[in-house]
Amino acid sequence: MIDPAQILIDAVSVGGLYALTALGIGLIFSVMRLANFAHAELVTVAAYMLFAFSGSPVAVAILVAIAAAVLLALATERIAFRPLRGADSATLLISSFAVSMFLQKLLVFLVGSRPKALDPLPALSRTVSIGSLQVSALKLVTIVVCLTLLAALTAFLKWTRFGLQMRASAENFTMSRLLGVRANAVIAIAFGLSGLLAAVVAVLFAAQSGFVQPRFGVQIVIIAFVATVIGGLGNLFGAAVGGFFVGVVTILLQAFLPAELRPFREAFLFVIVIAILLFRPQGLFPARNLKERV
């Protein structure tokens, strides 16, 4: 018999990673209507940095990874997305697709496509017992880190000057510019934050999977896309909830689907996405002002 508490811990730790990734994508979508597929490569590059600095102290490696992801996020914004600001979301999506492919092929070219083993958080590879439960320390830390970051991000958006500007831009970009919000600054901060989130996801995800290859970030970002759509594109609260929702659904499908259908579990996830797009095209928590007025 599967222990419900065990399932809950699995679901929250998986969902937390999806939620952080979905938030990174959602932050950027809310300020510039860009569904950033290249978020995957932010995660991948951060993971490669962990690999490159695996000889150094853990803190150093993590800081380098964060710095690399933030810089890469800012660079992609400046080079590829700023010239397209104001273009329709389809053009932006194709452009982010191109950025993603470019970085992925560049990684294959530079480091090869063979997986590299890494263990960024060796201290956490043991289990902790809580009552009768055996839980891996890594899962607990993942949950704690995700919840802390969610709280910190909420606080940033609610109580700081830039957070306020970002929320204003998400609501009505033109209006907030007219009221003195500097577009470049807000967008740069959004990209920087998404880089930070990507790096954190990279650390936790690499610790779980134990290896990195050029497509490392793609899988998790695809699932996070699903989460943002389910939660409501452009709504950060929705993105976080969507992330946890997808985590729970994945774990439940994994646990309760008959064995012969289990390989198809992600297909069910995508069917849910299409269904949600059909019945609630704006997601479960629609963002305000997303629909263009005529």
Partner: peptide, 28 residues
Amino acid sequence: IPIMRLSGIGAAIATLSLMFICYIVLGN
């Protein structure tokens, strides 16, 4: 029949999902 109602980003994600579904189903 159902998904032609979608435009823009919704259509992009729905068709991308369709591609993933084909890939997962055929691959398994």
